[in-house]
């Protein structure tokens, strides 16, 4: 197992180097990332500080090294608008996004796995048809539509805070996180339900399940213990990648709900052509996905010994 983790970690490192190289090339190799402005002039002092921090006067390979060095020390440059270190902005927003992502995933798993199991176990029943129809519908509706509908109908109702609202109106985090998490979870839950149904059906046909049943195990144990574990493998892969994506910030959903996370930070930064923030958030998103995939792979190996042994 240790060897496997080591091997996967090395691969992840390569991916990170490749990804940062791409982001670096996209942002730095073509022109001056700190010269572009939105509606405003970048104060010369800030532009100069950014250029110096990123070593823009050096040749490209050296720039990349400086940039990687900066990444490791957490020096991501200075934000145009606020004249604050970008790392501070990330530190402020990442926990909010993590909270949102986790709540979304919990809703996602709860709805998706439950619906998938019911659909598989009671195949061709009314419940199964219902799950199929509803999940098709949910996959078909874009997340932003769900977001807008939720804002229009539920924000300001009961515990859900209004959007937008005056910044002095304080709301408990769990009321703020629910609607955007739900909007994010719906499409994912539909995918999870379908994956779960498919893989559960496959597992239920396998020999060891027949054996388990023949041994006289209760149906509850057969499904809950023997079938579930194996049929979770594709679902976990999906959820892991999906969590990585959510941790990187859900730009549209966070934007719609004005949820103070990484996605909203990026949304604002793009609006203001705030290159240092855009660069930092994009790199953060890449890291989130790579690290999450690594974790998924390790979990995968834990669930299915064949993978780590091959």
């Amino acid at each position: 197992m240790g060897k496997f983790i080591l091997r996967r970690a090395a691969q992840a490192l390569l991916v990170i180097i490749g990804a940062t190289l791409l982001v670096f090339l996209a942002n730095f190799a073509f022109g001056d990332p700190f010269g572009s402005t939105g509606d405003r002039q970048v104060p010369p002092a800030i532009a100069a500080a950014n250029r110096a921090a990123f070593g823009l006067d050096q040749p490209l390979p050296l720039q990349y090294l400086t940039y990687m060095g900066n990444l490791f020390t957490g020096d991501l440059g200075v934000d145009y608008n606020q004249n604050r270190p970008v790392i501070e902005l990330l530190i402020e927003t990442v926990p909010n996004t993590a909270r949102l992502a986790l709540v979304a995933i919990v809703i996602d798993i709860f709805i998706g796995v439950t619906a998938g199991i019911i659909a598989a176990v009671k195949r061709y029943s009314f419940a199964d048809v219902l799950v199929t129809v509803v999940s098709t519908l949910a996959i078909g509706i874009p997340t932003f539509v769900i977001g807008f509908v939720l804002v229009a109908t539920l924000s300001g109702v009961g515990p859900f805070p209004t959007v937008p609202r005056s910044f002095t109106v304080e709301v408990p985090w769990y009321t703020e996180v629910l609607l955007p998490a739900f909007a994010l979870a719906i499409v994912d839950a539909a995918f999870v339900a379908r994956l779960m149904r498919g893989s559960m059906l496959e597992v239920l046909r396998s020999d060891y399940i027949r054996t388990a049943r023949a041994k006289g195990l209760s149906e509850r144990k057969v499904i809950g213990k023997h079938a579930l574990r194996n049929s979770m493998i594709p679902v976990i892969t999906y959820i892991g990648v999906s969590l990585g994506g959510l941790l990187g910030g859900a730009i549209i959903t966070e934007g719609i709900f004005q949820y103070p996370g990484v996605g909203y930070l990026l949304f604002r930064a793009i609006g203001g052509n705030n290159a240092p923030v855009i660069t930092a958030v994009v790199i953060f998103s890449v890291l989130a996905i790579v690290v999450l995939s690594l974790i998924v792979d390790i979990l995968y190996a834990y669930l299915d010994p064949r993978i780590r042994l091959s």
């Binding site: 924000s155 300001g156 959007v163 937008p164 609006g271």
Partner: peptide, 24 residues
Amino acid sequence: AEFTILPSANAAQLEYDGFVNGQF
């Protein structure tokens, strides 16, 4: 007075929404 800072890309829309829902 309270000035709530909105993203410039869709500030006008959000101001309007906030007026409609009684926040602004």
